[in-house]
């Protein structure tokens, strides 16, 4: 108990040290001009103001966050819901593997953001182009991880299933998928990370709202305080999302010792 408490202090210290250093190089010794790197105090003020103000980019910070989240999560969910079963089917049914693999191997190395130019031409700069882009970047890790996870199924577990007279489908459902679950959940987490990264990149390139858009606008008018505000929001929301997912994972994955 006592030990855990001291670890929490260590974590708080790390953030305090970071803020202190930032404050030191800006407000205290003036190493950077405030038009280049504003102090944490300025950023905090901007943050509070931006919660309700639509200047200078036409929307408040919560509106930008909501817009980014909405697009990122729709594409992400589609990627998980479609990608995971495809990976499972590829690993379990040889014919599905042979059919899907050539196309998948071609698509796999293309980073999510490389789809953006084509998507903009096809769907414009609205929501659709981004949702499709994010779908693709979430889809790939989901397929890969569920495929690898199913392939880790132990022969001896399948033998047990066979000697109990389980059908092929029962063995997939009762043995292979539970085996793969930790791997699948890891893929779902990686996919969330890449969805969140990709939405920001997509908004930087072309959009009319969202955190990436807000940052890009602020760069145009030399407002580093808004840029940093946006970056911190991106970081905080990204951490929060993966924290929530970790909690879900701990509930779903059973029988494995959690550290």
């Amino acid at each position: 108990m006592k030990k855990k408490k001291s670890y929490i202090w260590l974590s708080i210290l790390s953030i305090a040290f970071f803020l202190g250093l930032w404050w030191f190089v800006t407000d205290v010794i003036g190493m950077f001009k405030s038009t280049v790197l504003p102090s944490p105090v300025v950023v905090a003020q901007t943050f509070i103001k931006k919660m309700s103000s639509t200047a200078p980019d036409g929307a408040t910070l919560p509106q930008h966050i909501f817009s980014s989240l909405k697009i990122a999560l729709s594409g992400y969910l589609a990627g998980v819901v479609i990608g995971t079963p495809i990976g499972i089917m590829m690993a379990w049914y040889k014919r599905v593997d042979l059919f899907v693999r050539p196309v998948f191997d071609l698509i796999r190395p293309i980073p999510g953001i490389a789809w953006i130019p084509l998507m903009i031409i096809m769907f414009g700069i609205g929501m659709t182009s981004k949702v499709v882009t994010i779908f693709l970047s979430a889809f790939v890790p989901c397929v890969l991880n569920s495929y690898t996870g199913i392939r880790q199924t132990k022969d001896v577990h399948l033998w047990v299933g066979q000697t109990f007279g389980a059908s092929n489908f029962q063995m997939l459902l009762h043995i292979a998928i539970p085996t793969a679950l930790p791997m699948i959940m890891a893929g779902v987490r990686v996919a969330l990370g890449s969805s969140w990264t990709t939405i920001i990149a997509a908004e930087l390139l072309a959009s009319t709202r969202g955190l990436g858009f807000m940052i890009q606008q602020a760069r145009g008018i030399y407002r580093p305080d808004i840029i940093i505000c946006g970056m911190l929001a991106i970081g905080a929301i990204g951490s929060l999302l993966s924290y929530v997912l970790q909690k879900i994972e701990n509930r779903v994955v059973k029988g494995v010792i959690h550290n």
């Binding site: 132990k154 001896v156 033998w159 047990v160 494995v256």
Partner: peptide
């Protein structure tokens, strides 16, 4: 089996 083939989940 030799090594336990229990389902850990």
């Amino acid at each position: 089996y030799q090594r336990t083939a229990l389902f850990p989940w």
